[in-house]
Amino acid sequence: MSAPKQLLIIDDDPDFVAGIKAILVKAKYAVDVAHNPKDGLAALKAKPYDLLLLDVMMGRGAEGIMIARKLGKDPKLRDLPVLIITGIREQMAFLFPGQAVHPHFVNVDELVEKPVEPKLLLEKVEALLQSAGTRKAQSS
């Protein structure tokens, strides 16, 4: 049995984080949490993670999007898979319900909307980890 995958959640809503962290911990992931962009970036530099769960709308602005942009520019972090969590599809574009805006900030990312059902969350996390693994195997 391999070591648990290391996940980081960056989201400024502790109650929401509690809700997704419990699901991930139960599925045997090791989960760290940062409640603001600054702590989040520090955590990303302090140790390697397998996946980042990122709230794109923190605070009053799109601070999460700024983090995603920074990741995209950082050669070390560019390949970190990111699950973007959003509650904002309506403000970004006018789209048919069910379709969310997928900004594609980094190489491997996916989008879910708040709130997210446990099954869907785990599926997305698993799929992201796998596609990141495949990518790595191909490039090495």
Partner: peptide
Amino acid sequence: VSHELKSPLGALQQNLYV
């Protein structure tokens, strides 16, 4: 509306799921 109403409701729903 979005931030102050939707976020708490989202968090509520998320915890209910769990």
